[in-house]
C-alpha cells in the first residue's frame, strides 16, 4: 500500500500550547478522508499543522516519503500540499482574474495562461465572473475560487477546511461532487466538514478527533455506522433513505 501522508505522534498548537496531542494516521494516495469531531476538537488545527501554519510541538509528518515537519508552509506548498482554509480566504479587492494569477504565484510565467484557462474550463462560473472582485462573489463562488486558486499548483494532497460552510444545501451537494471529481483525478483529499453526513458519503476513510486526540479511525462506512458517532455527530438515527444512499 502506498501512503502519501503519514503522521506519527504529532503534537501541535499555537503560541507553544498544544491543541493536537500525539495524533498518528496514514493516508493512502487518491483517497478522501474526513476529520470528524465537535467544535474545538482540533480539526482545523490539525490541518494547519499538516500545512505548517501553526506551531509544531512534537512528532513527525512524512509526506511523499520525506520528513516535512520542519518545513515552512511555502516549502510544503512547493512539495505538493494545498490547503484551503476555513472562511473567506481570497483577495477580496482583487478581481477573480487577479486572484487566479496569485494562485500561479510560484509557477513559471509561461505556464500561467494555460493553467488558468484549464481551470476556467473546469469552473465555467469563474470565467463568467472573471472581472468581478472576489469580495463581491457569493459564499459558494468564493469557495470555488479559493479551491481553484490552490488547484492551480496541482497539489497531490488537498486539505479542505469546511468547504460547504454557510452554503445552501444544493450548493453543498455540488461541493461534494466537486471533491469527488478532484479525488478521481488522483488527488488525495482531506476534508473537515460541518456536514459530517455529506462528507462521510463521499469519503473512503474517517478519523474522529476528540479534545485534540484521535478517538477513532476507520472506513467512512464503519464510522457512519458506529452508534456512538451517530449519536454524537450525525444527529442520532439516520433515516432509511440516508442509510440506503
Amino acid at each position: 500500500m502506498e501512503y502519501l501522508l503519514e503522521l506519527t505522534g504529532l503534537t501541535a498548537g499555537y503560541a507553544g500550547k498544544p491543541i493536537i496531542h500525539d495524533v498518528s494516521f496514514r493516508l493512502e494516495k487518491g483517497t478522501i478522508t474526513t476529520f470528524v469531531g465537535g467544535n474545538g476538537a482540533g480539526k482545523s488545527t490539525l490541518m494547519r499543522a499538516i500545512y505548517g501554519s501553526c506551531d509544531h510541538l512534537g512528532g513527525g509528518i512524512i509526506f511523499d516519503g520525506g520528513q516535512i515537519e520542519d518545513k515552512t508552509p511555502w516549502e510544503r506548498y512547493e512539495l505538493g500540499i494545498g490547503f484551503v482554509p476555513q472562511g473567506r480566504c481570497n483577495f477580496p479587492d482583487m478581481t477573480v482574474s487577479e486572484n487566479l494569477k496569485m494562485g500561479c504565484y510560484t509557477l513559471p510565467r509561461n505556464e500561467h495562461r494555460d493553467r488558468i484557462d484549464a481551470m476556467l474550463e473546469s469552473f465555467p462560473m469563474l470565467s463568467r465572473k472573471i472581472k468581478e472582485k472576489a469580495g463581491n462573489l457569493s459564499g459558494g463562488e468564493q469557495q470555488v475560487l479559493e479551491t481553484a486558486m490552490v488547484l492551480l499548483s496541482e497539489p497531490s494532497l488537498l486539505l479542505l477546511d469546511e468547504p460547504s460552510l454557510g452554503l445552501a444545501p444544493k450548493t453543498q451537494g455540488e461541493v461534494f461532487d466537486f471533491v469527488k471529481r478532484i479525488a478521481a483525478d488522483g488527488v488525495t483529499v482531506l476534508v473537515v466538514e460541518q456536514n459530517v453526513h455529506g462528507a462521510l458519503l463521499i469519503s473512503d476513510k474517517a478519523i474522529v478527533l476528540e479534545m485534540g486526540r484521535k478517538f477513532l479511525e476507520g472506513t467512512a462506512e464503519e464510522v457512519r455506522n458506529n452508534p456512538n458517532i451517530r449519536h454524537a455527530y450525525l444527529g442520532g438515527n439516520l433515516s432509511e433513505e440516508e442509510v440506503s444512499e
Partner: peptide
C-alpha cells in the same frame, strides 16, 4: 489577506 497569501505559497 495573509492567510490567503500563505495558501497560494
Amino acid at each position: 489577506n495573509r492567510d490567503a497569501a500563505l495558501m497560494v505559497g
